[in-house]
Simulated assay, not measured.
Amino acid sequence: MRWVVMFLGLCSGLVAVAALTLWAFEGFATWNLSVMGVVALVAGSALTALLAIGLMALVFHSHRSGHDEAAAHDDPFAGPRP
């Protein structure tokens, strides 16, 4: 589970660096956004990317830990297998 946290931090850091680099080279000036608009755009993009990366990391963790296999073999009418 530690690699999930490290992966989330790395990916969200890369998204933030890309947005700040674009902002540093005046990439947002053509959109006529205020400072609060740029902050909202960067924060929304970073949080959306963080959520997507986190959910995908949990999917991989669930698959590797065997929880998917246990759920796939349960019969709701007969009960779980021993």
Score class of each variant (00 low, 15 high):
22 L>N: 02
23 W>D: 15
80 P>T: 06
46 A>H: 03
13 G>S: 14
40 A>W: 05
18 A>D: 10
24 A>Q: 05
1 M>I: 14
42 V>I: 15
23 W>N: 11
24 A>K: 05
38 V>H: 04
46 A>I: 09
69 E>W: 03
28 F>Y: 15
7 F>D: 13
43 A>L: 12
73 H>W: 07
15 V>M: 11
22 L>S: 01
39 V>E: 02
63 H>V: 13
39 V>M: 05
31 W>G: 00
21 T>S: 08
27 G>F: 05
51 L>N: 09
69 E>M: 03
44 G>C: 11
11 C>S: 14
11 C>G: 12
71 A>L: 13
47 L>W: 08
78 A>H: 02
9 G>K: 00
7 F>K: 06
12 S>N: 09
36 M>S: 15
65 S>Q: 14
27 G>W: 06
26 E>C: 08
31 W>Q: 10
39 V>F: 13
5 V>K: 11
44 G>T: 12
34 S>Q: 06
78 A>Y: 04
51 L>Q: 12
21 T>F: 04
11 C>W: 09
53 I>H: 02
66 G>S: 14
53 I>L: 04
30 T>L: 01
75 D>Y: 08
47 L>N: 10
10 L>V: 13
18 A>M: 09
70 A>D: 14
71 A>Q: 12
69 E>F: 09
67 H>F: 13
46 A>P: 02
11 C>D: 03
42 V>K: 01
71 A>Y: 07
58 L>Q: 12
22 L>D: 03
45 S>K: 00
54 G>L: 13
80 P>E: 12
54 G>N: 11
35 V>T: 13
42 V>L: 15
19 A>T: 05
58 L>M: 15
16 A>Q: 01
33 L>P: 04
46 A>N: 03
52 A>Q: 04
1 M>Q: 07
4 V>W: 06
81 R>H: 12
38 V>F: 06
13 G>D: 08
55 L>G: 07
16 A>R: 00
59 V>S: 10
17 V>A: 15
32 N>C: 00
23 W>G: 00
13 G>K: 00
69 E>C: 01
55 L>M: 11
28 F>T: 08
28 F>A: 10
15 V>R: 02
33 L>F: 15
43 A>I: 06
82 P>H: 14
61 H>D: 08
74 D>Y: 06
9 G>P: 00
80 P>F: 02
